[in-house]
Computed example of a mutant assay.
Amino acid sequence: MISASFKRNELVLKELDLLREDANVYKLIGPVLVKQDLAEANANVRKRIEYISAELKRLDATVQDLEEKQNSKRDTILKLQQRIQSVQAGKGKA
């Protein structure tokens, strides 16, 4: 969802960059289109892109951290399973 929003904002920025300085730009606020200054619209979209990029980086770091924890827990479980199997094999021989 964040990625789609990022792409939409990039497309909006590209469209704004194509406009002349005297072009009319409108922002949808609820059911109303409100006239907005091109420079202000451009700055708002850039800020949104910056914010979304930071969120994507933060989420990527969180996912990576969770994957590392998952791998660590998996290793711990495998070691415990091996110990259990060796203990059970030892009891079977006795």
Score class of each variant (00 low, 15 high):
Ile2Arg: 11
Ile2Phe: 11
Ile2Ala: 06
Ser3Phe: 09
Ser3Ile: 11
Ala4Thr: 14
Ala4His: 13
Ala4Phe: 07
Ser5Cys: 06
Phe6Ala: 00
Arg8Met: 08
Arg8Trp: 03
Arg8Lys: 10
Asn9Arg: 02
Asn9Ser: 04
Glu10Ala: 09
Glu10Arg: 11
Leu11Phe: 06
Leu11Glu: 11
Lys14Thr: 02
Lys14His: 00
Glu15Ser: 09
Leu16Tyr: 14
Asp17Phe: 12
Leu18Cys: 08
Leu19Glu: 04
Arg20Val: 05
Arg20Met: 01
Asp22Thr: 15
Ala23Gln: 04
Ala23Arg: 05
Val25His: 07
Tyr26Trp: 06
Lys27Val: 09
Lys27Ile: 05
Leu28Lys: 14
Ile29Glu: 00
Pro31Tyr: 06
Val32Asp: 08
Val32Gln: 10
Leu33Ser: 12
Leu33Phe: 14
Gln36Asn: 11
Leu38Gln: 02
Leu38Met: 05
Ala39Pro: 03
Ala39Met: 07
Ala39Gln: 09
Glu40Trp: 12
Ala41Thr: 09
Ala41Ile: 02
Asn44Arg: 10
Asn44Ser: 14
Asn44Ala: 05
Asn44Thr: 14
Val45Met: 06
Val45Gly: 06
Lys47Leu: 03
Arg48Met: 09
Arg48Thr: 15
Tyr51Pro: 12
Ile52Arg: 00
Ile52Lys: 02
Ser53Leu: 00
Ser53Asp: 06
Ser53Gly: 05
Ser53Met: 00
Ala54Ile: 03
Glu55Tyr: 07
Leu56Lys: 15
Leu56Val: 10
Leu56Ser: 05
Lys57Ile: 04
Lys57Phe: 08
Arg58Pro: 01
Ala61Trp: 02
Gln64Glu: 00
Gln64Cys: 01
Asp65Gln: 15
Leu66Val: 07
Leu66His: 13
Leu66Trp: 10
Glu67Ser: 02
Glu68Val: 05
Lys69Pro: 01
Gln70Ile: 04
Gln70Glu: 09
Asn71Thr: 15
Lys73Leu: 03
Asp75His: 12
Ile77Trp: 04
Leu78Ala: 14
Leu78Trp: 14
Leu80Asp: 12
Gln81Tyr: 10
Gln81Thr: 13
Arg83Thr: 15
Ser86Lys: 15
Ser86Thr: 15
Val87Trp: 03
Val87Tyr: 07
Gln88Asp: 10
Gln88Met: 08
Lys91Trp: 06
Lys93His: 14
Lys93Gly: 09
Ala94Asn: 08
Ala94Met: 03
Ala94Phe: 08
